Deep mutational scan, measured.
Amino acid sequence: RLTVMSLQESGLKVNQPASFAIRLNGAKGKIDAKVHSPSGAVEECHVSELEPDKYAVRFIPHENGVHTIDVKFNGSHVVGSPFKVRVGEP
C-alpha cells in the first residue's frame, strides 16, 4: 500500500511550487497525478523518482481556493485520493 507523505493541506501560495512525496512500499507500477483548480482547469503534476521506492509529485497552483489532487497508481486512486489542498488565505 502506498504512503503519501508531507502533503501540505493549507498555506500554499499561487504560482509557487508545491510538492509532496509518495513511498511505494515495494509496489511496482506507474504514478499519475492531476490537480483540479477551483475554476475547473486540470493540470498534470510532475512526478519524479527521488529514490527507487520514493517519488516526488510537484505542481504549481495558479489561483486561490481549494484544489483537488487526484493521485493514481496503476490507474486506481491511492488511499485518501482525491486530496484537497487550500491555496491562499481562507
Rank of each mutant, 00 (worst) to 15 (best):
V42S: 07
S39W: 10
H67R: 00
E44A: 03
E63L: 11
V71G: 00
K72T: 08
V4R: 02
E49A: 13
D32N: 15
N15C: 04
F20E: 00
I22W: 00
E89K: 06
N15I: 00
D70T: 12
P38S: 08
K72I: 11
V66N: 10
E63P: 00
H67E: 00
F73I: 13
A41E: 06
L12C: 05
H67N: 13
K84R: 09
V57M: 04
R58F: 10
A56E: 12
V87C: 14
I60E: 08
A33Y: 03
S37G: 06
A41L: 12
V85A: 10
F73A: 03
K13T: 10
F83E: 05
S81M: 02
I60Q: 04
L2G: 04
C45N: 02
V66Y: 11
A41N: 15
E44V: 02
V42Y: 12
H46L: 13
H46S: 13
G40Q: 04
D70R: 07
T68N: 11
I31D: 00
A56I: 15
L12A: 13
V79M: 13
N15A: 06
C45R: 03
E43M: 05
V79L: 08
S48P: 09
M5D: 12
K54Q: 08
N74E: 14
F20D: 00
I69C: 05
K34Q: 13
N15P: 00
N25T: 12
S81I: 00
K30A: 10
V79C: 09
F83V: 07
L50S: 13
E89P: 02
V79Y: 06
H36A: 09
I22F: 14
S37K: 01
G65S: 07
A56L: 10
R1M: 15
V85G: 02
P61L: 01
V35Q: 14
S48Y: 11
S19E: 14
I22E: 00
R86V: 11
K54I: 06
P61K: 00
P61I: 02
G29F: 03
E44P: 01
S10Y: 03
K72F: 09
P38G: 01
V66T: 08
V4F: 14
G11R: 04
T3R: 15
V71C: 11
V57D: 00
F59Q: 00
H67Q: 10
G65M: 01
A33E: 00
G26N: 08
S81L: 01
R86S: 13
K54G: 03
E51F: 07
G40D: 09
R86H: 03
H46T: 07
Q16G: 01
V78I: 12
N15V: 01
P61C: 04
V57C: 15
P52Q: 11
S6W: 13
F20G: 00
H36P: 00
A18H: 05
D70S: 10
K34C: 05
P38E: 01
H77D: 11
P52A: 11
V71M: 11
D53H: 05
F73D: 06
S48C: 13
G40F: 03
N25G: 02
R86A: 08
G65I: 00
V14I: 09
F83P: 01
H46R: 04
F73M: 07
V87K: 00
K13V: 04
P52E: 08
G29W: 01
G26H: 03
A27C: 09
P17Q: 09
S10K: 15
S76W: 07
E44L: 04
G26M: 05
Y55C: 15
K72P: 00
P90K: 08
H36F: 14
V78K: 02
G11C: 07
V87A: 07
R58K: 14
G65A: 06
H36L: 14
A56G: 15
S19G: 06
G29D: 02
G75R: 11
K84I: 06
T3K: 15
T68A: 11
Y55S: 10
P90L: 06
V4E: 10
V4G: 08
L12P: 01
M5H: 05
S6P: 10
G75C: 05
F20R: 00
T3I: 15
N15K: 11
E49C: 11
H77S: 10
I69Q: 00
K54T: 13
E63R: 06
G80W: 03
V79S: 12
V66G: 12
